[in-house]
Structures are given as C-alpha cells and as structure tokens.
Amino acid sequence: MPSLSPRLREAAVYIIQNMQKCAFMGIEKVARAANVSPSTVMRLLLKLGYKNYVEFRDELRQMVMTQLAPIDRLKAVASADTTLSETIGISFNRDISNIETTAGRNRETAWIEACSLCINASQIWVFGGRSSFAVASFLALILEQLTGKASLIAPFDESLPEIVNRIAPDHLGIVVGLPRYLRVTVDVANLVKARGAKLLAITDGPFSPLAKIADASLYAAYEGTGHHNSLVGAMALVNCLAAVLRLQQPEMVNSRLKDLEDIYAKLNLFKTYISHPCP
C-alpha cells in the first residue's frame, strides 16, 4: 500500500485484518477500533472507488458471509447491534436489494438465451439440493406447466444414476446452486455435459463453479440476514423466466395453460371460496 498515507494505511490494515468484524460494524466503530477518524476511513473508501460506507460494508459483508459456515454467519449477524424494528427493516430491505441486484445482473440477451434453451430442448431436467431444492421444485413446476416437458430430479432420489442415464444430447439440464455450492450439484452438472446435453445454471455469478461449465447462466443475489441464503432473488428470477417464456411463445403457453385449466376443473382440484360480508 505504498500510495496510501500513514493514516489511510492504518485504516486499511485494520480492515484487512478484521474483515469479518468490519462487515457488521458502523463507520464510527471501525474508525475507533483502527484508531483513526471516521473521515479517514471515508477517504480510504473513496480512494478505493466506493460511493459511501454502506456500499463498501454491503460488499464486504457479502464476501464474508459467502465464506462462513451457517453457525458462524448466524453469530456474525447476531453480533450486530440492532433493535427488533431495525432487524425487521434490514431483512425486508435486504430482499428488496436482492431482487434489484438480480434484475441488474442479467442482460436481455441472457434471458433470451435461457428461453431458447428451454424451447429447443425435447426434455428439461431440473436439479437443486438442500435450500436450492425449493427453487428447483418451483422452477420444474412452472416449466412443466408452460412447456409440458420438464421434470424435477430430487437429490435424495435413489434412482438418480438411472435418471441421469436417460439424459440425451437434445435435452436441457438446469442446475440451481448458490454458495456454499453442493458437490452433488456440480457433479450432476458435469454429468449433464458429459451426456452431450445443454446446461443452464441458476447461480450467483460468473465465478460460480456451475457458471464455468454451463452453456448459459442466470444470476441471482442471495444475501440473507441469518444463517441461510435468501431465495427471494432466485424465486424472482424464476418468475421472470416464466414471463419471458410466455412472451417468446404465447401460443404454446396459452394452449398449455388452457388445457391444464380444463383438467383442473374436471378434477375439481381447487376449492372455490366466496367471501360473504359480515351480517
């Protein structure tokens, strides 16, 4: 850090050596711990290209949380000095930020490419493990409703090898995986590619091990306020993919949904509820 003044260097050294703590501290606490003034910390961040302290802290927090085990993430969040109302506000604001970040990470060309893969495939296989299984399950349901050719691969299914053996070159595999990435998800992704099929990854960014082997990727922000990843960004991504697919193939989608509604009616699948005014 030869280009930094002695005071800026002190602040930088403290932050580098205490990244986990700094990710959950305000600028005044960081300055006090580093034995510098808040204005010194702010000058350092401006020199590094950040607009304000919150932008820096959010980026640092996301990096730190990615590397922590769940129990350590929970301890880190619990150590933050916040009230109940602040905690509730932070949680909702974080997910609003996740949706906005997810929208900004994916260009129109990425949506078009993902939809083209879904449309051109003769069969779609969707896989995700642990918390990502919820996203994979929702995605498989939506794609089956819209295209009639999607199936969910459950990570706990004993017939997983036999299912993978059915994957053909004209199929599409979709894998859902956020940090910390599951080995089985990466293994399934590699098997899909080995079978000659196309691969679409729903993950967090281009440095994900899934994105590196996929033919196309969609990126979802996942930063949570507890020990777990937030799935709000990934779920919003699924909703958007469905909307773009309907836009790209309106006749196919409308025909599929009409047929499904007829079947729902014949099965009397949904309970009709009419709200009556109070007497």
Score class of each variant (00 low, 15 high):
M1V: 15
M1W: 08
P2F: 09
S3T: 15
L4T: 01
S5L: 04
S5W: 00
L8K: 05
L8T: 00
E10M: 00
E10A: 00
A11V: 01
A12N: 09
A12D: 11
I15E: 00
Q17F: 05
Q17S: 15
A23P: 12
A23D: 13
F24K: 12
G26E: 08
I27W: 00
I27T: 07
E28Q: 11
K29M: 12
V30G: 01
V30T: 14
V30F: 05
V30L: 11
A31V: 05
R32N: 15
A33K: 04
N35E: 13
N35G: 04
N35Q: 13
V36E: 00
S37D: 13
S37C: 01
P38I: 11
M42A: 07
R43C: 01
R43E: 06
L45V: 06
L46V: 08
L46W: 07
K47H: 11
L48I: 05
G49V: 09
G49A: 06
N52L: 01
N52C: 02
Y53S: 04
V54G: 00
V54K: 06
V54R: 08
E55D: 14
F56G: 08
R57M: 10
R57W: 04
R57A: 11
D58T: 07
E59V: 04
E59I: 10
E59A: 09
E59C: 03
E59H: 10
L60Y: 06
R61C: 05
R61V: 01
R61N: 04
M65A: 11
T66K: 15
Q67G: 14
L68I: 08
A69N: 05
A69L: 15
P70F: 06
I71G: 01
R73V: 11
R73W: 07
L74W: 07
L74F: 12
K75D: 10
A76C: 08
A76H: 06
S79K: 14
S79W: 08
D81E: 10
T82S: 08
T82C: 08
T83V: 11
L84G: 00
G89M: 12
S91K: 14
S91I: 12
N93D: 12
D95S: 13
D95V: 08
I96N: 10
S97T: 11
S97L: 13
N98A: 07
N98D: 14
I99H: 02
E100I: 02
E100F: 03
E100V: 00
T101K: 15
T102H: 00
A103N: 03
